[in-house]
């Protein structure tokens, strides 16, 4: 066991974890951030995407001990009460949701993209989201949602 410190959605946590414990499992089962999903457990589907120190990462491939001292952002940190983020709003407005299981990971990937590139081209959106599988929507509405979110945030496109 090892004691680690995590900041998740701006709140600080100190907890004991095993050396082989996966960050995703710690977030979901120990800290109850179940909005972050597990779709494959091998970094191929993007359902577990979170932001770790300003970068989108698949939390199923990261050991909890590796995240010691990091700042993490999950889907739960994107809204405060009824007050949802611009990206979340855009996903609703563009109907970029069907079953909803990939949605948290998609929104987080979109957030990481727009944080570093507020005005992405369609190709840049596709590259940023190409690690997130959605089996329901066919992606068209998701692409539009990211464009809309960029516009709302003041990008030019």
């Amino acid at each position: 066991m090892k004691t680690i410190n995590l900041t998740v959605n701006k709140r600080k946590y100190q907890l004991n974890v095993k050396e082989n414990e996966i960050l995703l499992d710690v977030l979901r089962t120990k800290l109850n951030f179940t909005g972050t999903k597990e779709g494959c457990g091998e970094g191929e589907c993007g359902a577990c995407t979170i932001i770790m120190d300003d970068k989108a990462v698949t939390s199923c491939l990261i050991l909890a001990v590796e995240a010691d001292g990091s700042e993490l952002e999950t889907i739960e940190g994107q809204s405060i009460g009824e007050d949802i983020s611009v990206i979340q709003e855009a996903f609703i407005e563009e109907n970029a949701i069907q079953c909803g299981f990939c949605t948290p990971g998609m929104i987080i990937s979109a957030k990481a993209l727009l944080d570093r590139n507020p005005n992405p081209s369609e190709e840049e959106i596709d590259i940023a989201l190409s690690g997130n599988i959605c089996r329901c929507t066919g992606y068209y509405s998701i692409r539009e949602a990211v464009k809309r979110a960029a516009e709302k945030k003041g990008g030019n496109k």
């Binding site: 979901r28 951030f33 999950t74 929104i107």
Partner: peptide, 23 residues
């Protein structure tokens, strides 16, 4: 009419609970 999808808010906020998330 394009009425917004029911439970969209729950899905975009990650609060929608799937059996995966249940204990």
């Amino acid at each position: 009419k394009d009425v917004k999808r029911i439970k969209a808010l729950e899905k975009v906020t990650g609060s929608a609970q799937f059996v995966h998330d249940m204990e």
